[in-house]
């Protein structure tokens, strides 16, 4: 039986997001020309929350987009087509500071796909990566700029991020393979 251990609870996630939001503003040198791009699905929810926090504290409006990277994956043959592809909707990215937001950073392949997809929509001035959890295990030379928390997970373990919008509660849990 796989074992499930909590990594972050809802309050810890709230604190992490607040810290990520202020770090993001600092790293971007303000809020001007910043576009948050969430990766489907839970990255979108997290990006929306970070945007809410920044807009609340600064009063500024941030650009916002959603990205589904399924069609840019490099492993269609290995995994078979995903049942349903999520929505992609991006504002103009030319000259913008794009912050890609995802729930978990693992191999880096999703981020590679997201970078390729963004490049087909425009030419951002700069791209940053913001993730709630870095679980290690990179297969590409990709690192996050803003990280909520880290956990050491084996290659066969799973890190589940639950968000109340989709899952009814906020939590990060490590699911150890047996």
């Amino acid at each position: 039986m796989p074992t499930r251990t909590p990594v972050l609870d809802d309050r810890a996630i709230g604190r992490a997001l607040a810290r990520m939001a202020s770090e993001l503003v600092e790293r971007c040198g303000g809020t001007e020309d910043v576009v948050l791009v969430g990766i489907q699905r839970r990255g979108v929810e997290l990006a929306a929350r970070i945007r809410g926090l920044i807009e609340q504290s600064s009063g500024a409006r941030l650009g916002f987009g959603k990205l589904d990277i399924t069609l840019y994956r490099d492993d269609l043959q290995a995994i078979g087509p995903r049942p349903v592809i999520g929505e992609t909707s991006l504002p103009d990215l030319d000259g913008k500071t794009v912050v890609i937001v995802d729930d978990v950073l693992f191999t880096g392949r999703t981020v590679r796909a997201a970078l390729d997809e963004c490049a087909d929509f425009g030419r951002p001035r700069r791209v940053l990566l913001c993730v709630l959890v870095d679980r290690g295990g990179r297969e590409l030379p990709i690192q996050a700029d803003i990280v909520g928390g880290s956990v050491t997970a084996g290659p066969r373990d799973r890190v589940d991020v639950l968000v109340s919008e989709l899952d009814g509660r906020d939590a990060v849990e490590l699911v150890r393979a047996d």
Partner: peptide, 19 residues
């Protein structure tokens, strides 16, 4: 075309959504 081109099914490959 996309659905036909997909390879063998393995919805639960290690890494799941986060690969």
């Amino acid at each position: 075309l996309y659905l036909l081109a997909g390879g063998s099914p393995d919805w639960h490959h290690p890494g799941g959504d986060h690969a």
